[in-house]
Design a protein around this nucleic acid. Structure first.
Length: 749
DNA sequence: CAGACAAGGCTTTTT
DNA sequence: GCCTTGTCTG
């Protein structure tokens, strides 16, 4: 058994796996098998009976990675690894907080606030404090607070550090914000990391409990940990020092989010007796791609240094292609895909198209759709960020945690029920004066001065509905409760009355939400399938978590999202100075190094072929000159690739027939306004028809659904949320379902 | 108090 | 171009 576990490893990997009893730093270059090391190491620890599964803590970068790692460990050791704590920093911390909530003065059914919730809360506070939201933008304050939290600067410290008027105002808001979070029984994203630390400092015995429990601590992507995460890991492993961190300083790309590359650079200082293992054999890319990537990243100062090598053949050269504009660039992407598919018998899922900013996906989508190439976008506007979905979730949140005032205010007059702004203000004032929650104020509306009879009745009715549902919540499952909420409060009414295509999409999204809850309920043990758990899972979802790599579709995503993934063919778009690297990084050497690392990440995603695209001219929708086309120069990063590794092609000197060709103008350095008449085409959606039936479903197939019974598939679409099936069920009910959630069974007519 | 309309801001990357 | 915010009118 052990032999199997260890035999598939090279020497360096073997050392990393077997060194278990002290601090270990694994410097794992791109594609060097670090996931395998982590997985086999956990398997090894378990198999050697050094620990039981519940004594292992493993931190990954996405929930998806956590799931996959757990599965692989179970396959290796041939038994379930239940009880093992494996997940992202945020989900592990949320778990600790659920258990220890009372020690912080919280209930364990707390809500997790995302950026939108935080911003709303800050705005509410600003209104209360009479601080103009026009001058001090809530969004900016949110950013400042988040940034402070990531650097572990408390409100008090922030106040001490404040030097000007604005900062003192923010300090005030920050302090109020902290109090409000607690009143609302809510943590924001950053709290999830900080609050457990606070608790560990305050209550030694709680820290000891977790130290004793987690006998082995393993951390992936260590180069992207921030200060709080650093301390968490340090604290948890302090007593036994069985800590293993895996990372690659060349792939540190989250500095802007508070990640501190020093964490990995100075691991050897923190643990002078630590073992360091370098994984330098790359199993992913061709030597040519590796050499080019190495040459680029060698321009960085801040690194520990390593040299990746590959046993794969040298491979073909990198293709560098210049185009007229973003539209021609997108056409180029289509050409690459068609050509590679034809030449190398590849399928759509072998391709990734990467870009620096989400906005760049637009032009690509249009061309791919026109070429009938199925694609799938990771990230961008997220499903759970959509208005209609957030509205529905807000109802559920209030039922779980009535103190969640941000959610309550979102729904108190949505759909409109005659509880207007004035009434809301009165409720809020009353709640504040009497030191009760907004929800409680609603329950005693008759005592609130200035609330008239008509308004009071409406508040009473609304509160009564919520109370009834709260009671019901104990008896029915999450899916039933959510269905009830959507029906009872008429959340679909507004959208079903109109014929706007947008509204149809919103209706579908609400159905999708229900499907996703149904799926959640079906795939958990009963005691785990609570609404609270669902809300948490949804809040902590990463972009990649919603990505199904089994789709036969080209994947479009940002370079950040691509971290940790690999594809036979990778196309990186928009390699222009000012876009990649972004212009704001140009005057800061540290930012520029991070952009270069990001480029390195992008290059090393490729297994066999790498295409680097740039456009001479690109339309931007940012800043004052929004909508203008800017001329740009080729990215300095492209120039850093030595000639022998690349083939360059410049298609930018002739019209590509892209529809924009006629507007090409060789006016260097300036920009020009596009003709007024030229209507921008709004992308119909991010969906693309799927002609292949490789989802396992075909039009005409018969399926069985648990609630709706037997039905026949009328249509199949790939969407950002899954394979969307249009099914007609007995009784002529037409439903749109997400195959991945709906748990359908294929049957013969 | 609610809905319609205009104006202004905006996109760097994400848990 | 899109979305959010504020203002006006019934």
């Amino acid at each position: 058994m052990t032999s199997k576990l260890l035999s598939e490893l090279n020497e360096a990997q073997l050392n990393a796996v077997k060194y278990t009893e002290g601090p270990l730093l694994v410097l794992a270059g791109a594609g060097s098998g670090k996931t395998r090391v982590l997985t086999n190491k956990i398997g090894y620890i378990l198999e050697q009976n050094m620990a039981r599964p519940y004594e292992i803590l493993a931190v990954t970068f996405t929930n998806k990675a956590a799931r996959e790692m757990k599965n692989r460990v179970e396959n290796l050791i041939g038994m379930p690894a239940d009880g093992m704590w494996i997940g992202t920093f945020h989900s592990i911390c949320a778990r600790i907080l659920r258990i220890e909530a009372e020690h912080l003065g919280y209930d364990s059914n707390f809500t997790i606030y995302d950026v939108d919730d935080q911003t709303r809360l800050i705005q509410q506070l600003q209104n209360g404090l009479q601080i103009d939201t026009g001058k001090l933008k809530p969004r900016q304050i949110q950013y400042m607070i988040s940034d402070s939290k990531n650097k572990m600067i408390t409100p008090k410290k922030f106040e001490d550090l404040a030097v000007d008027f604005k900062q003192r105002k923010v300090a005030k808001i920050y302090a109020e914000y902290e109090k409000a979070l607690k009143r609302n029984n809510a943590f924001d994203f950053d709290d999830l990391l900080i609050k457990p630390l606070d608790l560990f400092t305050k209550k030694k015995e709680i820290l000891e409990k977790y130290q004793n429990r987690f006998r082995y601590v393993l951390v992936d992507e260590y180069q992207d940990t921030n200060k709080a995460q650093y301390y968490l890991i340090r604290q948890l492993s302090k007593s036994h020092r069985r800590i293993c961190v895996v990372g690659d300083e060349d792939q540190s790309i989250y500095r802007w989010r508070g990640a501190d590359i020093e964490n990995i650079l100075s691991f050897e200082k923190d643990y002078p007796d630590c073992e360091v293992v370098r994984l330098e054999q790359n199993y992913r890319s061709t030597q040519n791609i590796l050499d080019a990537a190495n040459a680029v990243v060698a321009n960085n100062e801040k690194r520990l240094g390593k040299n990746l090598w590959s046993q794969k053949e040298s491979g073909s050269k990198i293709s560098v292609v210049g185009s007229v504009d973003e539209s021609a660039e997108a056409a180029q992407v289509v050409e690459v895909i068609n050509q590679e598919m034809y030449d190398n018998k590849l399928s759509y899922k072998d391709f990734a198209v990467l870009y620096r900013t989400n906005a760049q996906s637009r032009a690509l989508e249009e061309k791919l759709r026109r070429a009938q190439i199925p694609y799938h976008i990771v990230g961008g506007t997220k499903f759970f960020d959509r208005k209609e979905v957030k509205d529905a979730l807000a109802y559920l949140r209030v039922l779980i945690n009535p103190k969640d005032t941000v959610a309550l205010r979102r729904i108190i007059n949505y759909p409109t029920r005659g509880i207007g702004n004035v009434t809301q203000q009165k409720l809020e004032g009353f709640a504040f004066q009497n030191n009760i929650t907004y929800y409680q104020a609603m329950l005693v509306a008759e005592e609130v001065p200035g609330v008239g009879d008509a308004a009071r009745k409406k508040i009473d009715a609304f509160a009564a509905s919520l109370e009834t549902l709260k009671i019901k919540a104990d008896d029915v499952n999450a899916f039933e409760l959510a269905t009830e909420v959507i029906n009872q409060f008429g959340l679909k009414r507004e959208y079903s009355l109109s014929n706007l295509p947008d509204d149809e999409a919103r209706l579908e999204n609400l159905n999708e939400l229900l499907n996703s809850i149904a799926y959640f309920v079906e795939n958990r043990d009963a005691e785990d399938a609570t609404l609270a758990k669902y809300l948490e899972e949804v809040a902590l979802l990463t972009d990649i978590d919603r990505w199904d790599d089994n789709y036969s579709a080209v994947t479009l995503m940002t370079l950040h999202s691509a971290k940790g993934l690999e594809f036979p063919v990778v196309v990186v778009c928009g390699l222009e100075d000012g876009l990649f690297p972004l212009s704001r990084s140009l005057d800061n050497p540290e930012d520029l190094e991070e952009e270069r690392r990001l480029f390195y990440v992008g290059m090393t995603r490729a297994e066999d072929s790498l295409y680097l695209l740039w456009a001479r001219q690109r339309r931007r929708f940012t800043g004052k000159e929004s909508g203008m086309s800017f001329r740009s120069n080729v990215s300095r990063f492209l120039l850093e690739i030595p000639l022998q590794y690349k083939n360059e092609e410049d298609n930018s000197s002739y019209s590509s027939g892209s529809g924009y060709g006629g507007s090409y103008n060789s006016n260097y350095g300036g920009y020009q306004r596009k003709s007024r008449q030229q209507k921008f085409k709004r992308p119909e959606s991010s969906y693309v028809p799927d002609f292949s039936g490789d989802s396992g479903y075909n039009i005409g197939d018969w399926v069985i659904h648990e609630q709706f019974g037997k039905g026949q598939i009328l249509g199949i679409e790939k969407s950002s949320t899954g394979t969307k099936l249009t099914v007609i069920f007995a009784g002529k009910a037409l439903k749109k379902l997400i195959a991945e959630y709906a748990n359908l069974q294929l049957v013969n007519s």
